[in-house]
C-alpha cells in the first residue's frame, strides 16, 4: 500500500519535472508549427484591413504559392544551396581533412583548431567577415587573391551571389563534417586495413573498397543532419545578402521572412512555412525510420 503511493507520487513528480520544459516547447515550437497550418488558410496581414480581421480563404494562398515564380525560385535556390554547401562543399573538404588527420601528421591540434574556428563564429560575424572578403574593387581580399592568377576584380556578391553564399556556408561547416566523419573513421577496425595491405591493396582500392563502405552509416547520418541544418539557415545568408540581388540568394527561410515581414502578408508567409515544415518533417520521419533511432 505504502509502496504504491510512493510509486504514484514519484510518477507524479516526473510529470511535474517535465512540465516547464514541455510548456515552453509547446508554446513556442509545437503550437506555432500547427498554428502555421491554420494561418496559411487565412488572408492575415501585418497592416491594413486584414490585420484587424483576417478571414478564411481556403487554399487560395497555396494556389497562389504554386503559381508564384518567386516561390519556385526560392525552392531552387534552397536546393542548390543545400547541395552545393552541405552535400558537396562541406562534405568533400570535411572528409579530406578527416582523412588527412587520420595520418600521423604533426601539429594535429593546431590544424584541428583552425578548421573548427569558422564553426564557432556567430552568424552575424560570418556575414561581416565575408562582406570584407568579397569587397569589390582591387583592394578586396578575394580580388587581390585572384589577381595572382590574372583574374580581374569581381563584384562577387553581385556577379556570383549564389556561389558566394555556398562558399561561405562551406567554409563555416567543414568542421562539423570533419568532426563527425573523424568519429566514423575512428570506429573502423584497424585490422581490416592491415589485412588489405597484406593482400597488396593500393591506397585507392583501400579507400573505395573499405573506407567508403564502412563509412556509409556515418555519411548517411552526416547527410541528414547537414541537410536539415542547412535547410534551416537564416542569419548567415540574411546578413550577407538579405536574399538579393534580385532574389538570387532568397533561400526558403528568407523568402518566408520577406513575404511576412517585408511584404506584410502573414497568411501567405505561413503557407510557405507550411511547405518548409512538411519537407523537414518528411526528412525527420525518414531519418527516424531509416536509422532505426533507439530512444
Amino acid at each position: 500500500m505504502i509502496k504504491l503511493t510512493y510509486e504514484n507520487r514519484r510518477q507524479l513528480g516526473y510529470r511535474f519535472m517535465m512540465a516547464p520544459a514541455l510548456l515552453l516547447m509547446a508554446a513556442f515550437i509545437v503550437f506555432p508549427a500547427f498554428y502555421a497550418f491554420s494561418l496559411s488558410l487565412t488572408d492575415d496581414a501585418l497592416l491594413g484591413f486584414a490585420a484587424q480581421e483576417s478571414s478564411f480563404v481556403g487554399l487560395r494562398n497555396f494556389s497562389r504559392l504554386f503559381g508564384d515564380p518567386l516561390f519556385w525560385n526560392s525552392l531552387k535556390v534552397t536546393l542548390i544551396f543545400v547541395i552545393g554547401s552541405a552535400v558537396i562543399g562541406q562534405f568533400v573538404l570535411g572528409f579530406l581533412s578527416a582523412l588527412a588527420l587520420q595520418r600521423p601528421v604533426r601539429y594535429k591540434p593546431i590544424f584541428n583548431a583552425i578548421i573548427c574556428l569558422p564553426n564557432a563564429v556567430p552568424e552575424m560575424v560570418v556575414g561581416f567577415l565575408w562582406i570584407s572578403m568579397f569587397a569589390s574593387g582591387e583592394y578586396g581580399t578575394l580580388n587581390r587573391f585572384v589577381a595572382w592568377f590574372g583574374v580581374d576584380p569581381q563584384q562577387w556578391l553581385y556577379t556570383f551571389p549564389l556561389l558566394s553564399i555556398i562558399i561561405v556556408n562551406t567554409w563555416r561547416g567543414i568542421a562539423f563534417a570533419m568532426i563527425l566523419l573523424t568519429s566514423g573513421l575512428a570506429a573502423i577496425p584497424k585490422d581490416i586495413y592491415e589485412a588489405a595491405r597484406v593482400d597488396g591493396a593500393t591506397d585507392t582500392q583501400v579507400f573505395w573498397r573499405i573506407t567508403v563502405p564502412m563509412m556509409m552509416p556515418t555519411i548517411f547520418l552526416y547527410m541528414f543532419i547537414s541537410t536539415v541544418t542547412t535547410f534551416a539557415i537564416f542569419g548567415l545568408v540574411y546578413t550577407l545578402s538579405r536574399g538579393g540581388p534580385a532574389n538570387s540568394t532568397e533561400i526558403l527561410g528568407i523568402y518566408i521572412y520577406n513575404q511576412s515581414f517585408t511584404a506584410f502578408q502573414l497568411g501567405y508567409g505561413a503557407a510557405v512555412a507550411v511547405v518548409s515544415l512538411v519537407v523537414s518533417m518528411i526528412l525527420g520521419i525518414i531519418y527516424v525510420k531509416a536509422l532505426k533511432v533507439e530512444v
Binding site: 515550437i29 537564416f234 518566408i256 511576412s260 512555412a273 515544415l277 523537414s280
Partner: peptide, 9 residues
C-alpha cells in the same frame, strides 16, 4: 528538426 524560419509568423 523544425526550421526556426518556418515558425516566425
Amino acid at each position: 528538426i523544425v526550421p526556426p524560419p518556418a515558425l516566425i509568423v
